Amino acid sequence: MPIGPQPHGRRGTVEEPYSPLNLRLVLAAFGMVVCAVLSVVLFRAGWTLPGWLLAAWAAVALVDIVVIQFRRRARARAEGGATKDHSLFE
């Protein structure tokens, strides 16, 4: 395997690396669900400060999901609106 910034034939450059948006979307959704559920559990247990911290992290994950969706729509527009199936790592 060549040692370098990116394997040959891959999209993206050193200045503008390629971002796997679908993987980011899955991870952000997982983080939002986990943080929200744990936040509710902590509130019910009477631990308000950790509950608020996890609620804030869930809100950050929600904002990340919105940003990722904007970027996925921009990618679809840049590709000409074709409904190309992207893998999890694209």
Score class of each variant (00 low, 15 high):
residue 1 M to G: 15
residue 1 M to Y: 08
residue 1 M to D: 11
residue 1 M to I: 05
residue 1 M to R: 12
residue 3 I to M: 11
residue 3 I to Y: 11
residue 4 G to I: 00
residue 4 G to P: 06
residue 4 G to D: 10
residue 4 G to W: 01
residue 5 P to H: 13
residue 5 P to T: 10
residue 6 Q to V: 02
residue 8 H to S: 11
residue 9 G to I: 03
residue 9 G to W: 00
residue 9 G to K: 01
residue 10 R to K: 12
residue 10 R to F: 12
residue 10 R to G: 05
residue 11 R to K: 13
residue 13 T to L: 10
residue 13 T to Q: 07
residue 13 T to R: 09
residue 13 T to H: 08
residue 14 V to G: 07
residue 14 V to F: 08
residue 16 E to Y: 04
residue 17 P to V: 01
residue 18 Y to A: 13
residue 18 Y to V: 01
residue 18 Y to R: 07
residue 19 S to I: 02
residue 20 P to G: 00
residue 20 P to K: 00
residue 21 L to H: 01
residue 23 L to N: 04
residue 24 R to H: 11
residue 25 L to D: 06
residue 25 L to N: 05
residue 26 V to Y: 11
residue 27 L to M: 11
residue 27 L to P: 01
residue 28 A to T: 03
residue 29 A to H: 08
residue 29 A to K: 12
residue 30 F to D: 07
residue 35 C to G: 09
residue 35 C to K: 09
residue 36 A to W: 13
residue 36 A to N: 10
residue 36 A to T: 12
residue 36 A to V: 04
residue 37 V to D: 10
residue 37 V to G: 07
residue 38 L to M: 14
residue 38 L to A: 08
residue 39 S to I: 06
residue 39 S to M: 05
residue 40 V to M: 13
residue 41 V to M: 15
residue 41 V to R: 15
residue 41 V to Y: 15
residue 41 V to S: 12
residue 42 L to Q: 15
residue 43 F to T: 15
residue 44 R to L: 14
residue 44 R to V: 11
residue 45 A to Y: 14
residue 45 A to P: 07
residue 46 G to N: 14
residue 47 W to T: 04
residue 47 W to A: 13
residue 48 T to H: 14
residue 50 P to Y: 11
residue 50 P to Q: 00
residue 50 P to M: 01
residue 51 G to Q: 02
residue 52 W to S: 11
residue 52 W to R: 12
residue 52 W to V: 11
residue 53 L to D: 02
residue 55 A to K: 08
residue 55 A to S: 14
residue 56 A to M: 13
residue 57 W to N: 07
residue 58 A to K: 05
residue 58 A to Y: 10
residue 58 A to C: 06
residue 59 A to I: 08
residue 59 A to K: 04
residue 59 A to M: 11
residue 60 V to L: 14
residue 61 A to I: 02
residue 61 A to H: 13
residue 62 L to Q: 09
residue 63 V to P: 08
residue 63 V to F: 15
residue 64 D to K: 10
residue 64 D to H: 11
residue 64 D to G: 13
residue 65 I to N: 09
residue 65 I to C: 13
residue 65 I to F: 03
residue 65 I to P: 09
residue 67 V to Q: 15
residue 67 V to E: 07
residue 67 V to N: 04
residue 68 I to H: 04
residue 68 I to Y: 00
residue 68 I to E: 01
residue 68 I to S: 02
residue 69 Q to W: 07
residue 70 F to Y: 09
residue 70 F to K: 02
residue 71 R to Y: 08
residue 71 R to G: 05
residue 72 R to N: 08
residue 73 R to L: 10
residue 73 R to Y: 05
residue 74 A to M: 01
residue 74 A to V: 00
residue 75 R to V: 00
residue 77 R to N: 10
residue 78 A to L: 10
residue 78 A to R: 08
residue 78 A to C: 01
residue 79 E to W: 03
residue 80 G to T: 04
residue 81 G to I: 01
residue 81 G to W: 04
residue 81 G to L: 06
residue 81 G to H: 06
residue 83 T to D: 08
residue 83 T to R: 06
residue 83 T to E: 08
residue 84 K to Q: 08
residue 84 K to Y: 04
residue 85 D to H: 05
residue 85 D to K: 06
residue 85 D to N: 02
residue 86 H to V: 00
residue 86 H to I: 00
residue 87 S to N: 03
residue 87 S to P: 01
residue 87 S to L: 02
residue 88 L to T: 03
residue 89 F to I: 02
residue 89 F to Y: 07
residue 89 F to L: 10
residue 90 E to T: 02
